[in-house]
Design a protein around this nucleic acid. Structure first.
Length: 640
RNA sequence: GCCGGUGUAGCUCAGCUGGCAGAGCGAUUCCUUCGUAAGGAAUAGGCCGAGGGUUCAAAUCCCUCCACCGGCUCCA
């Protein structure tokens, strides 16, 4: 019997049923056959020995395919495991997949530290040097269970991932053998660059209740130079780390006495104030009225909304007894805003009623989670709640999404939109959740935004659109959110009087445009590498007098530019050193003033891109800066 | 919270096989007054994260705690 395989270019080929991917490649051409390392069959990455039993779409993976790197790293994981077992026979293997930039292997029954990694690395190099052929072998399920008699993890994989497979596949190189679907490269020698990177813990199957395993991260490349480039990129990423830049530019610190609670230094606060002012104007335009509510409340405030239960269950709420009463620091602003809504009888004519607040909230995040400005315990959200009628849902959400889109445009950010759906901790009926989720999805689609769906990830009260950014180290963080909530109005019995003179239930929209000022600034610092747009730069202009004699003239120029944040470098340094310091401080504009400028009443302008122009009149520069700042242009462009 | 790592001058880091606490940058003072990415000299600056232990002697070895870094889990 023959089956039809469809190639990526649309061509069709008829082959015997049971032919392998490799056989198909040889059918196409002997050269391709020899180069085959694996295949993609109906979108699934498979070993070259994978048999074709029905009509499929097939793609042959060779050394030049992206998938080759995955296979190579998968094999590198095996090489690590082999080296580990040679040096530590007591180690039990669990899983060892490839990842976006390398591989890891989770093991247990062995304690490893960094010195062990070096030894294992050396052993792995020998395995690579020996160029051991990697071969696929099959075993019956029964044999496999017997083989893994002492390894409950592999037995669990046999029962779950490999349920019903008989025989099951193993990959072998010399004395090493591992249960594995593949694919792998043909021999260990194909790994040109190999390194072990980190050692850490990881829960079996990613569940906190399970045993903690030892995870070793590594990566591999076809050759040494690509590995070096990878390590170089990693080092460069560290240079962009907002914690490092925050220290260098004196923006903020998170001292030992306030873990997770950043202190803004004057430079950082300048940036934050600009952000706050900008967001205030956005909130005004969107029709939000600013309110202010306290951090300290009785715990009972959060009981009807469900916050108390949710946050205390996760140990995330700061709450304590005082004078026989339980108090807490607010973890969210919703309850206080709902309270203000409820202080009046609301008519359908009043809606939407919208409150905004730069709300300081506190959450007892696990100590291991804290990370500079990106993950904190005390933060200020640019929070807002709109209380609306059901017929206003679509319009309200669309307005917020458009505002976020406009804001992000001023930062040159590319964000990923994610729709998060009902999770285990959800309150309210499934019906309500479905409606709310559909409404968010519809709004995203009507805005033409592409988005991913994260099932079960929403907050407890309603589905959420998360706007995600990536930091310098490739970690993803949620910035802004839009959440639709039918539950809290219900639980708090919020109402408005309708046209029919009956009571109706409003819907709540929870939204944050930037998210928290902390996280947004953290992401922004890394995104700009500290080179802030002029409107945000703590020091927008620095005047560099050629000699001390020019300091008085520098003062004069500063008065001329009094609408901007202008510093004067008055240390008795050479001009070269003053320029260097200004570059180090990432100041957008430097004005060099010496005898010539003083005589002509001009300045010599240099920007942080090292562009220069002499004979500039201060008023021309001032007019330019006014426009650049007002329009929030991303790069200093006077010298373009 | 869990696994591994780190904590020495304002910053970056040496010193850690136990024996007088170091460098560069920065700061201060003096000299230099300089034309587009580091001029010179001198001086000051430390509870070696905190507490306990071992020792004649601890930055160094051991224990506990705190904070930070990477990862897991969890989140704006």
């Amino acid at each position: 019997m023959s089956v039809t395989v469809t190639l990526p270019d649309g061509a069709e080929l008829s082959v015997e049923a049971g032919s392998t991917v490799e056989d198909v490649a040889y059918e196409i051409g002997p050269g391709l056959g020899r180069d085959t390392v694996a295949g993609v069959v109906d979108g699934e990455f498979v070993a070259k020995e994978h048999p074709i039993e029905e009509d499929v779409e097939i793609e042959i993976v060779t050394e030049s395919s992206d998938e080759y790197l995955d296979a190579l790293r998968h094999s590198a994981a095996h090489v690590f495991a082999q080296a580990l077992q040679r040096l530590h026979p007591e180690a039990t293997l669990t899983i060892g997949p490839w990842t976006d930039d390398g591989f890891y292997y989770d093991v247990t029954g062995v304690e490893l530290d960094e010195a062990d990694l070096e030894e294992i690395s050396a052993e792995a190099e020998e395995i690579i040097e020996a160029d051991l052929p990697i071969e696929r072998v099959e075993m019956s399920r029964e044999e496999a269970f017997e083989y893994y008699e002492d390894n409950p993890f592999k037995r669990e994989i046999l029962e779950e991932e490999a349920a019903g497979e008989d025989p099951v596949s193993f990959y072998e190189q010399a004395e090493f053998r591992d249960l594995c679907r593949g694919p792998h490269v043909a021999s260990t020698g194909e790994i040109g660059g190999f390194t072990l990177l980190e050692i850490s813990g990881a829960y079996w199957r990613g569940t906190e209740e399970n045993e903690m395993l030892t995870r070793v991260y590594g990566t591999a490349f076809p050759n040494e130079s690509e590995l070096e480039e990878f390590l170089e990129r990693r080092e460069q990423a560290k240079e962009r780390d907002h914690r490092k830049i925050g220290r260098e530019m004196d923006l903020f610190s998170v001292p030992d006495h306030s873990p997770g609670c950043p202190h803004y230094h004057p430079n950082g606060m300048t940036i934050r104030r600009e952000l706050e002012e900008y967001i205030r104007t956005q909130n005004d335009e969107l029709g939000y009225e600013e309110v202010r509510t306290p951090e300290l409340n009785k715990a009972e405030l959060w009981k009807p909304t469900g916050h108390y239960e949710t946050f205390t269950a996760e140990g995330e709420m700061f709450a304590w007894e005082q004078d026989d009463t339980e108090y807490g620091l607010k973890p969210m602003n919703c309850a206080n805003h709902a309270y203000i809504y409820d202080q009046q009888v609301r008519s359908y004519r009043d809606l939407p009623v919208r409150f905004s607040e730069f709300g300081n909230v506190y959450r007892n995040e696990q100590s291991g989670e804290l990370s500079g400005l990106l993950r904190v315990r005390g933060m200020t959200q640019d929070d807002g709640h709109a209380f609306i009628r059901k017929d206003q849902i679509q319009g309200e959400i669309v307005d917020v999404l458009e505002a976020i889109d406009e804001i992000l445009g001023h930062f040159n950010f590319e964000m990923e939109y994610v729709l998060e759906t009902q999770g285990d901790n959800a309150v309210g009926s499934d019906q309500i959740w479905r409606e709310a989720t559909d409404a968010l999805g519809d709004a995203l689609e009507s805005e033409g935004l592409t988005y991913a769906v994260d099932e079960g990830e929403a907050a407890f009260y309603g589905p959420k659109v998360g706007i995600n950014a990536v930091d310098a180290l490739g970690r993803e963080w949620t910035i802004g959110t839009v959440q639709l909530d039918f539950n809290i109005p219900e639980r708090l019995d919020l109402t408005y009087t309708g046209e029919d003179n009956a009571e109706h239930r409003p819907v709540m929209v929870h939204r944050a445009l930037l998210g928290s000022f902390e996280r947004f600034m953290g992401v922004m610092i890394e995104h700009f590498d500290g080179n802030f747009p002029t409107w945000l730069a703590p020091e927008q202009v620095r005047i560099l007098p050629i000699s001390d004699d020019n300091v008085v003239y520098a003062e004069e120029i500063r008065r001329e530019l009094s609408d901007f944040r202008v510093g004067i470098e008055d240390r008795s340094w050479t001009i070269g050193k003053k320029i260097q310091a200004a570059h180090d401080d990432r100041v957008p504009y430097m004005l060099i003033v010496g005898g010539n400028e003083e005589e002509a009443g001009t300045v010599s302008v240099r920007d942080r891109f090292e562009r220069e122009r002499g004979d500039v009149s201060p008023s021309e520069l001032r007019e330019h800066l006014e426009g650049e700042v007002a329009e929030k242009r991303i790069e200093p462009d006077f010298l373009e």
